[in-house]
């Protein structure tokens, strides 16, 4: 697979040269591949937010490089700005950044900054709104009349409308009810499939990440100790536990079952997968 976004020996030190100096990232080599659905997990303060803010040039590395499609994004001011449009970043609780009078105008803020023609902006706004499930007649309303979950959709649409090649979302489902979580994750998947876009989903919920992503990167204390498919990463159950992360509950149960000598699949993250694995094992007569 082709790398789209890379960091090379990326380090970031906050408040360098003061008594409050603190390294948030240390020599991080991170790669995101074209068209993949990547998950980043790490607990609060692990450096994951610092990492993603480097990926679209909001933070400047203390040392090291960030490459987008092979080009250093800090090569010149123009490249940095361009990268921000190509690598869309949706912050945590993005609903608090809405500011326009109408939903339409708010979604159009990004595309307008890109300097697109009015027709193109219009097309993108409507398409982005459709992706996140906003109705046409809602577009002329004020975003402040909406519910929290709806506001978040508007905010996500505001980034999707820039049609970024890489879409990074920081805890997009935080504080939503289960229905809201499902529908937002669904919207993101739709965008992923329609544009063959690279998605980077940041979360600390193993359950959410495990069942949506193709590949997983663990961030801890400013380094990336584990990368790989969810089932590869979850092999390190105990280490993850020590980092305050842990594996999905179902995976834990199945790791224990395996430890007890049952011949049973280990890449189990959800109840559906668990059911299937148990039925498979029973039908083949595995176990002791």
């Amino acid at each position: 697979m082709e790398a789209i976004l890379e960091t090379k020996k990326l380090s970031h030190i906050y408040s360098a040269g003061t008594p409050f100096e603190r390294a948030a990232l240390l020599d991080v080599d991170f790669t995101a591949y074209q068209g993949e659905y990547l998950g980043i997990i790490g607990h609060t303060g692990s450096g994951k937010s610092t990492l993603i803010q480097h990926l679209n040039g909001l933070l400047k590395p203390t040392s090291g490089q960030v490459l987008f499609q092979g080009t250093d994004i800090w090569r010149d001011a123009k490249t940095t700005r361009e990268t921000r449009f190509q690598v869309g970043l949706v912050f945590q609780y993005p609903e608090y950044q809405l500011f326009e009078e109408t939903i339409y105008k708010d979604i159009a803020f990004g595309p307008k900054n890109m300097g697109l023609s009015e027709d193109e902006v219009d097309r993108r706004v409507r398409e982005a709104a459709r992706f996140v499930g906003l109705k046409e007649e809602q577009l002329e309303k004020s975003p402040f009349e909406l519910s929290g979950g709806q506001k978040r959709r508007v905010a996500i649409a505001g980034v999707i409308a820039m049609e970024p090649k890489v879409l990074i979302l920081d805890e997009p489902t935080a504080g939503l009810d289960p229905v809201g979580v499902e529908s937002i994750l669904g919207n993101i998947r739709d965008y992923h499939e329609a544009h063959n876009a690279t998605i980077i989903l940041v979360s600390h919920s193993m359950e959410d990440v495990a069942r949506t992503v193709d590949r997983l990167v663990v961030v801890n204390d400013g380094t990336l100790p584990y990368q790989g498919t969810p089932s590869e990463v979850f092999q390190h159950g105990q280490e993850l536990e020590a980092m305050g992360l842990g594996v999905p509950q179902m995976t834990r149960v199945f790791n224990r079952l395996k430890g007890m000598g049952f011949d049973i699949g280990s890449s189990v993250f959800t109840i559906e997968q668990a059911k299937k694995a148990i039925l498979d094992t029973l039908s083949t007569g595995g176990g002791t």
Binding site: L58, R81, R84, Q97, F109
Partner: peptide, 26 residues
């Protein structure tokens, strides 16, 4: 908020006085 709007291409540092004032709205 500044970071979030920058991520959508807002420019807080460039432009003349009026453009800068306008950039503060978001």
């Amino acid at each position: 908020i500044m970071s979030a709007q920058r991520a959508r291409g807002a420019d807080f540092d460039g432009g003349n006085l009026i453009q800068r004032a306008k950039a503060l709205i978001p």
